[in-house]
């Protein structure tokens, strides 16, 4: 085995697989988004921006285009829910990770294990659990009824709140682990130094702990935000398909073979949003490095 050659052929399989299963197909998706919807599902090659126009406009009976907020609302809701999920995950992860990091060594290993464990449990099972809890006659409803607080209530399922709960629950481990890693690297002497220099707990948290764990928070934000934008399970099962997100909108277009070019156009839009987010994040990271 020659090391010089290995530099080439060691990387070749990764390149080939990614090129054939990712780069090339994404190129095809872009082409499909520009093609024309086929008569019997599928698509016919062509160059048309109809699918993108459909995101904003609706064709009425006379063939005129009228603005429709339907899909914009879905995109907006997706961004809003993904953003909110990321924020809630960060707010939950920071104190939890801090307590875990401060725990004695023996406890720490156990707590890290416990916080990772749900991540290993199948996502679909974890989402399903919330159906049992939130659903009609579910755990929450029964508990509230048992306490005599409500006589009858609307289902908690199929709401934005249900989706939000499911998203936070699904992705919280992806936030905790990087945040924990950066808190662990934090020198405890820095916290003591802050107190020594007359900083209260609140000042220490805001001016010492938070800035120093920001890299972990940002890494976690990327890990949570990106998959949230493309979430499929949560909107279908907890949103019941009534409140759509971009993920299940795309899935529906391909699922029933209904409108591939439109589905591809939404997918390209989603990809664009993710890229803008990642680029902003990279710019911010670079700025921080140049400051440091």
């Amino acid at each position: 085995m020659n090391w010089r050659d290995f530099r080439i052929w060691g990387l070749a399989p990764a390149w080939v697989i990614m090129a054939l299963t990712l780069v090339l197909p994404i190129g095809i998706v872009v082409l499909v988004s520009l093609s024309i919807r086929g008569a019997y599902g599928g698509f016919d090659w062509g160059l048309s921006f109809d699918s993108y126009a459909k995101i904003l406009f609706e064709e009425d009976w006379d063939g005129n285009l009228a603005f429709t907020p339907q899909y914009l609302a879905i995109i907006g809701r997706t961004l809003w829910l993904a953003g909110l999920t990321t924020l809630i995950c960060a707010a939950l992860a920071l104190p939890a990770a801090y307590v875990i990091a401060q725990a004695p060594a023996r406890w720490k290993a156990v707590l890290v294990y416990l916080v990772t464990l749900p991540f290993w449990v199948s996502m679909i099972v974890r989402v399903y659990a919330w159906i049992i809890i939130l659903g009609n006659d579910g755990v929450i409803e029964k508990t509230l009824r048992g306490l005599g607080l409500v006589a009858d209530m609307d289902s908690l399922l199929f709401t934005n709140g249900a989706m939000l709960t499911g998203l936070v629950y699904s992705y919280i481990p992806l936030m905790i682990l990087p945040v924990f890693a950066s808190i662990e690297k934090l020198d405890p002497a820095l916290i003591e130094a802050s107190h020594d220099l007359y900083g209260s707990r609140w000042v220490t948290a805001r001016r010492v702990i938070l800035p120093l764990t920001l890299p972990g928070l940002m890494a976690g934000a990327v890990l949570v935000f990106v998959p949230c934008l493309g979430a499929v399970l949560e909107p279908i099962l907890l949103g019941g398909g009534k409140v759509m997100l971009m993920g299940n909108l795309i899935q529906t277009q391909f699922g029933g073979g209904r409108n591939w070019p439109f589905g591809a156009a939404i997918a390209v839009t989603l990809m664009g949003l993710v890229m803008i987010f990642l680029m902003l994040n990279a710019l911010r990271a670079r700025r921080e490095v140049s400051h440091a």
Binding site: P25, I26, G230, G263, A267
Partner: peptide, 8 residues
């Protein structure tokens, strides 16, 4: 997002 890869 995985849905994009899946569609691709």
């Amino acid at each position: 997002p995985e849905i994009v890869l899946a569609v691709a």
